[in-house]
Lab assay of single mutants.
Amino acid sequence: MLDDRARMEAAKKEKVEQILAEFQLQEEDLKKVMRRMQKEMDRGLRLETHEEASVKMLPTYVRSTPEGSEVGDFLSLDLGGTNFRVMLVKVGEGEEGQWSVKTKHQMYSIPEDAMTGTAEMLFDYISECISDFLDKHQMKHKKLPLGFTFSFPVRHEDIDKGILLNWTKGFKASGAEGNNVVGLLRDAIKRRGDFEMDVVAMVNDTVATMISCYYEDHQCEVGMIVGTGCNACYMEEMQNVELVEGDEGRMCVNTEWGAFGDSGELDEFLLEYDRLVDESSANPGQQLYEKLIGGKYMGELVRLVLLRLVDENLLFHGEASEQLRTRGAFETRFVSQVESDTGDRKQIYNILSTLGLRPSTTDCDIVRRACESVSTRAAHMCSAGLAGVINRMRESRSEDVMRITVGVDGSVYKLHPSFKERFHASVRRLTPSCEITFIESEEGSGRGAALVSAVACKKACMLGQ
């Protein structure tokens, strides 16, 4: 009897593995994704193909990295998701002549009506938060230079001027797309009239992360975010950046690689679950690469896999709870928690219980395998993109072996128990001629924006502006 049951459990697990095998990517698959990513990057950089390229390769006008001589107080704003952060950054000489960066910050959550109302409502709310922060720190009387981390696709015309191309991540505030974001912020500050600010720089969160990590390690020339969304930036040779005049030196390019796949480059790798996630998203047909990796989508992918296993009578005796059938019910943090389970399955059992399920031991094991399959594919897909960037940098610099540091931020990278190990191992397999160091950014977005502002202020002083 026991043997029969054991055989049935083994057969069930084997069927589960057959279904989950769809998520496995072979090294040849990853090399294919990497080569296609490089081709799209090239198209994004070139003037004649930029418009139709899915990977936009947006110039950021960040050319210099901090040298350690900029000092002063800077205000930093960070808008990239449902939370908005205001930070005071003091850049100065530390002990023994070292450079020191001290920060104080406060988080504000953005109400739904500000995210989806008008641009005026959104930026009025942001300036209200700045006003509140300055009151708390008794700094209303000071006109501070301000660095703005704005983590949406922007076409820069200068370091302090950028046109919002399109909202992502659930934002829909009308009247912002096609307009200068810094102008919208300046107008809102003017409307309030109770404080003055000098907006000197606007950067993407990947750029802010790279600059913040450069402060720790001067070989950091790539910034990457794996959180709600997924994106990367890197220092490109100016001669390859056709959208900006000049051939000397390097400029940081914001790849906006989340949109890779929007022209069909990933079609052969998309599964039924991916198509369902895409169809029910706020932007169907867009940001397809990001939807395979980002935390906004990972939990939902797992939920759809679990429903398939229920329908195949391989999980929960073929019956799903009402909660499990509800879109968004299986949160991405559950994926991390399930994979963090120590082996007694308590954590998995508790999560499934909150979803109205009474799982068996085998159910718990199957749910864990589903989570591992989805998150491992995410790590491997992400590795193909980064390997594409790094191999490109090595080739354009004609280096036999390139040493490089990548600064990384984002909740999936930082909080998932195995993502970074799987990701690092896969990147290294795909970049055999590179020695890569990964560092995690601390308060990256805010500190990085302030350091970019410090560079901009120093330049302005040198130019006598």
Rank of each mutant, 00 (worst) to 15 (best):
V389E: 01
F260Q: 00
R5Y: 11
D113A: 07
T206I: 02
V200K: 00
D409S: 12
V199K: 03
V182I: 13
V401Q: 08
E268T: 07
G388V: 06
D363Y: 01
L122Q: 06
A425F: 10
V374M: 06
F438S: 02
S100Y: 07
G147P: 00
V200C: 04
K420I: 06
H156T: 15
T118M: 04
D400C: 04
V374A: 05
E399K: 12
D262A: 12
T255V: 15
P66S: 07
G68M: 03
S321D: 07
E279F: 15
M402W: 11
D341H: 04
Q337I: 08
V244G: 02
I163C: 13
V16C: 10
E242R: 01
D409C: 09
K169D: 10
S383P: 00
I211N: 01
F74I: 04
N283L: 15
C382P: 02
V310K: 14
T149C: 14
S281F: 04
L45C: 10
H50R: 06
A53K: 09
I163N: 07
H137E: 14
E312V: 03
E237Q: 04
V389G: 01
N391A: 11
D160N: 13
A114P: 07
P284H: 06
G227F: 00
D365Y: 07
A53F: 01
M121N: 10
R429H: 15
E14G: 13
E242N: 01
G170F: 11
V452L: 13
L58V: 05
L79H: 04
V226H: 02
V226M: 06
L47I: 15
L301M: 12
G318V: 08
L451F: 09
Q38R: 07
C382T: 11
S127R: 06
E268I: 05
G295Q: 15
L2Y: 04
S398Y: 11
K172T: 03
S151V: 11
A188V: 01
R397W: 03
G227N: 01
F23L: 13
A259N: 10
A188G: 04
R186E: 05
V226T: 02
D365L: 07
Q286K: 13
E395T: 08
S426V: 13
N240M: 02
M298T: 13
V335S: 04
E236S: 01
V62H: 02
N179R: 05
E279C: 15
S54I: 10
